[in-house]
Amino acid sequence: MLKRTALFIIVLMIASGCVSKQTLKSQMTEVIKENPQIILDAMRENNLELLDIVESGVDARNELKREAKFQDEINNPFKPVLSPDRASIGDINAPVTIVEYSDFLCPYCKKGAEVVRDLVAKKPAKYQLIYKHLPLHAESKKLAAVFEAIALIDKDKAFKFHDAAFQNQKKLFKDSDGKVLGKILLELGIDLDKLQKVLKSATIVKNIAADQAEAKSFGFDATPTFLVNGVSIRGYVPTDKFEAIVELILEKSPKKEHTDGEICEDCLNKM
């Protein structure tokens, strides 16, 4: 037994006379060097306990890494391009800006989209939500193009398409003839002839490419990923936990101080 073996060694050392901690440590080290089988045998006898210790250590180390990364992003937030030309919902002057990097055919993106959409619906003065594209499949890219085309026609309807596309995600997976997509567009009152013309716009290709390049520059390669005031939340997170992270970001973020005649950089980005 690991504890019993270690205790036996310590007792043996102490029984040999009064020794300092440094001397005791040196003597114990020497014993283990000369008899490594003691440790090996103890590890074999207590392999499950040892595995628990190792796993606990790994978890603790990973948690420290996550906390350090989170604090680093608080101090040095990512700075996505926030263009007024792109579709968004909520208040443009809201204290919390969420940028959603997503894929219309990603199941976890569907769950994540529901979370942030619900937050904005409940507290539109607190949140601004901007949808950006990180399509991982060719079909996803087509849906991204439709979203961007609708946004060029009517930004409000673009987010209605956002909701409808995620709600019908399973059907869109198998929508090889485009019937499901066509039905969604008709239900939203989209002029299909106008949409076809707008889909040829170079702006659409430019916007999607810019979103992908931006995500790559931030090291994002999976969906969904969210930026909350420049701090990343990767993957689907339930509503209560997402809100808790938002509050933590607001609490830990340096307070922006305005002076007469000056506007902070974040405010400029929102103009």
Rank of each mutant, 00 (worst) to 15 (best):
D72W: 12
D72M: 08
F70T: 01
N75C: 01
N76F: 08
I74H: 12
E73H: 09
I98Q: 03
A87N: 02
V81K: 15
N76Y: 10
P77G: 05
R86Y: 08
F78R: 15
P84N: 08
I89E: 01
I89N: 01
V96P: 05
T97I: 09
P84H: 04
P80G: 04
T97Q: 13
Q71E: 13
L82Y: 03
D72Q: 14
L82A: 04
R86W: 02
I98E: 02
K79F: 03
L82T: 09
G90M: 09
A87H: 04
K79P: 00
D85K: 15
D85V: 02
T97H: 14
T97D: 09
P95Y: 10
P95F: 07
V81Q: 13
A87Q: 04
I98N: 01
I98M: 05
N75H: 06
D72Y: 13
A87I: 02
F78W: 09
I92V: 13
I92Y: 12
N93G: 00
G90D: 04
P95N: 05
N76H: 15
P95V: 02
R86T: 14
R86F: 06
P84V: 06
T97Y: 06
A94L: 06
D85P: 01
S83M: 03
S83G: 00
I74E: 11
E73M: 14
P95W: 09
V96I: 14
D91L: 02
S88L: 06
I74P: 12
A94W: 09
L82K: 08
S88K: 13
K79Q: 14
N76V: 08
D91G: 01
N76R: 14
V96F: 12
D72T: 08
P77W: 11
K79A: 07
V81L: 14
S88T: 05
P84E: 04
I74T: 07
P80S: 07
N76K: 14
A87P: 10
I74G: 13
P95G: 07
L82W: 02
F70Y: 12
P77T: 08
F70M: 08
R86G: 01
S88R: 13
F70I: 03
D91E: 09
P77N: 08
A94Q: 04
R86M: 09
V96Q: 10
R86E: 13
L82R: 09
I98R: 03
L82M: 10
F78V: 09
Q71G: 00
E73W: 08
D72G: 11
I92P: 01
K69D: 14
P77K: 11
D72H: 15
P80H: 11
D85A: 14
D91V: 00
A87L: 04
K69C: 00
I89C: 04
G90P: 06
I74F: 10
P84A: 03
K79V: 14
G90C: 07
K69W: 05
L82N: 03
F78Y: 15
D91T: 00
L82E: 05
N76C: 07
I74A: 10
K69S: 10
Q71L: 15
R86P: 00
N93C: 00
N93L: 07
D91S: 14
N93A: 07
V96L: 11
D85M: 11
P84M: 07
S83D: 14
V96H: 10
P80R: 11
N93D: 13
A87E: 03
E73D: 11
Q71Y: 01
I74K: 12
P95E: 03
I74N: 13
P95Q: 06
